[in-house]
Design a protein around this nucleic acid. Sequence first.
DNA 1: CGCCTTTATGCAACTTGTTGCACAAGAGCG
DNA 2: CGCTCTTGTGCAACAAGTTGCATAAAGGCG
Lengths: 178, 178
Amino acid sequence: MSLPHAILTALLEKPSSGLELTRRFDRSFGFFWSATHQQIYRELGKLEQSGAIRALPSEAPARGQKKEYEVLPAGRAELAAWAAAGQDPRPMRDPLLLRMRAAAVVGTDGLTAELRRHLDLHERQLEMYEGIERRDFPPERDSEQDRLRHLVLRGGIELETFWIRWLTQALDTVDGEE
Amino acid sequence: MSLPHAILTALLEKPSSGLELTRRFDRSFGFFWSATHQQIYRELGKLEQSGAIRALPSEAPARGQKKEYEVLPAGRAELAAWAAAGQDPRPMRDPLLLRMRAAAVVGTDGLTAELRRHLDLHERQLEMYEGIERRDFPPERDSEQDRLRHLVLRGGIELETFWIRWLTQALDTVDGEE
DNA sequence: CGCCTTTATGCAACTTGTTGCACAAGAGCG
DNA sequence: CGCTCTTGTGCAACAAGTTGCATAAAGGCG
């Protein structure tokens, strides 16, 4: 049940239309939560029905016309309750680690190229995050919000760093076999 | 489409019944892929129907009786093809990072306890992994299979280490606000 | 025997996430 | 005007994962 809360958070930071939200989820928001535009539209409909958000008044509320949403007090309260509630960490489910374990039984043919490709993807991702860190979190900005958001971004950066280190080890190990 | 392949990998390592598989997925297999017993039984049925695995003959093939499965050549081939194929890393989706971002907007009330609880869970998990590392991967064991499986376990260990480090930072940041 | 617990298999309903496509309006262009 | 491209909203079908419950046999116990 996290997607509605992700949308509420995004809308509290800045009221947006469905497509704008989609773009934000593809960019910086995607560090910690991804979503497709279909998911977003479906959820916006539900949130509007339940009274958590509302569409800002517009002259032309027709199909194909931009529709901006803002969060209502009920939505804000719901988000605050959710953020403070207890939730266990999700059990791990990583296809790449699984494939490595499978390779231990069926052989490592064709794996090197795939590992290199992933390494490259993670290196680009890391560069992007570091660019954002330089742009959005210079040392002089230090409000409460900035510190918390910076912390989240640091999570993304350190996770990418982990993958890069692991993939490098993996390439050493797999190449060593051949 | 990873669950069937996770099951094939587990069965290749050691033929098992549904409940045995469930236990393995709760223990060491869970480092990189989790599954409930309902998922597993459903998938075992599908895999048997498609000819990837078969039930080992038993005297009493009745409900409530243990039913062991083994992988057939078709299943092994399918797994090898899947392991070597290209698959993009999944987009991130972490509820805790999301909650931290939400907390930046709605406030950090009640968050400290939750962060401490997660820190504790990750510390236990790390200890468990390190125990397994000492037991199953002593320096003298160094076959190809061992190196690859050890690599996967190292992934689990380093991920837990990452979370512990991040949660410690997070606690510093959140406590600093109060 | 009758009752309870453990081991084991399994169905059904629901929620969440993905994929593919349809529809609508405006802008640029010959 | 008619054509195509971009922006924007949305439905429908499917796949994957979760939750709750049902069923059955075997072993221990009074």
